[in-house]
């Protein structure tokens, strides 16, 4: 049985520090250290919490009722940083980032600056007023589209993402396929994201990807490039679910016991910097939602960002980080250890 016996509790003020030590200690007990790589390769921009959906597992707590969205001024600061520091990748997320008035400018200016652009696109937003041309916009800009679809069946998908979401998502996938996304040889990348529909870990990425490809093709005639498996993080709405259903302790124990030292080297926080809707900097989007900024002594805002300050620096961690090191590991690009 596993040697991990720590039972961290997230978000309980006094225990965050203790849990932080526990994650750092667990990494250390494996003979490893977790620090930033030499370069920030990806700037992940969270433009705000406004979304046309309110998914049950959402670590952002995003919904149509949220009003916290990035201003044009902050978007301009980000564009300036992208131009100046030439990030390899700009990864735009939310909420539904397309609902932000600055979204298309962020995409266009980032592409003009030479960055590869990823959009975390929830599929159904393309049916919102004024968003109907998103597939054509994505194609024109050559963005990589990453979309959540927690399962290839309606029941599981709607249970997590809301009634009717599966059928709308399939229609959206057909529209993306129609302009070339997810179609072999088109050069237009469409990746799907699997999140467990509940308090359990994801399956092996390669195995479930094969199921998704076979079933979505056979049942709906749609295709995509890759499936990313992402572990649900015990933050915000998913944490509320864990607590409401009495699953918190068991789920956290599962994450801790499944700690995989091989996942540490591939953690996204080593090469990614996250910026929120106000311009504040974080080591990842999960830290952002827990209000855990980059370590003190580093620039705290995109307006003050300089990549040289971050090379090889410490990373802010807490108990939720066990979610990224469990099993095959988890990142915004799926599992980090080959299955």
């Amino acid at each position: 049985m596993s040697e991990g016996k720590v039972l961290p509790v997230v978000n309980a003020d006094a225990s965050v520090a203790r849990a932080h030590v526990s994650f750092v200690e667990r990494v250390g007990s494996a003979g490893l250290t977790l620090r930033r790589a030499g370069a920030v390769e990806t700037l992940q921009v969270n433009v705000g919490k406004l979304c046309n959906q309110a998914c049950k597992h959402c670590h952002v707590d995003a919904s149509p009722k949220r009003t916290e969205i990035m201003s044009g001024e902050t978007a301009a600061q980000i564009i300036e940083a992208v131009r100046r520091f030439r990030f390899q990748t700009v990864d735009i997320t939310g909420g539904a980032p397309e609902l932000n008035p600055s979204f298309r400018r962020l995409v266009i200016e980032s592409r003009d600056a030479g960055a590869h652009v990823i959009v975390r696109h929830n599929l159904t937003v393309m049916f919102e007023p004024g968003q109907e041309d998103l597939p054509e916009f994505f194609r024109a800009q050559g963005v990589e589209v990453v979309s959540s679809l927690p399962y290839f069946l309606e029941q599981q998908t709607d249970a997590q993402r809301g009634h009717g979401v599966f059928n709308k998502s399939v229609e959206a996938l057909k529209r993306l396929n129609a302009v070339g996304y997810g179609v072999e040889g088109s050069g237009l990348a469409l990746h799907l994201v699997y999140n467990p529909v509940g308090a359990f870990l994801p399956p092996a990425q390669s195995a479930i990807e094969a199921d998704f490809k076979r079933e979505l093709r056979a049942r709906h005639g749609v295709s995509f490039n890759s499936l990313y498996t992402i572990t649900n993080m015990p933050i915000k709405r998913f944490l509320d679910y864990l607590r409401r259903t009495g699953n918190e302790e068991r789920y956290m124990r599962k994450l801790v016991e499944a700690f995989n030292p091989q996942a540490v080297a591939g953690l996204m926080c080593r090469t990614l910097l996250s910026v929120d809707w106000t311009g504040r900097l974080y080591d990842c989007d999960f830290n952002q939602m827990l209000d855990l900024g980059v370590p003190a002594g580093l620039p705290q805002s995109i307006a003050d960002f300089d990549p040289r300050d971050f090379a090889g620096r410490e990373i802010t961690t807490a108990a939720h980080c066990f979610g990224c090191t469990a099993g095959a590991g988890s990142s915004c690009g799926g599992s980090v250890v080959a299955s």
Partner: peptide, 10 residues
């Protein structure tokens, strides 16, 4: 039951 979920069964 957990193993089945975590290996992708429905």
């Amino acid at each position: 039951a957990q193993s089945c979920l975590e290996s992708g069964s429905n």
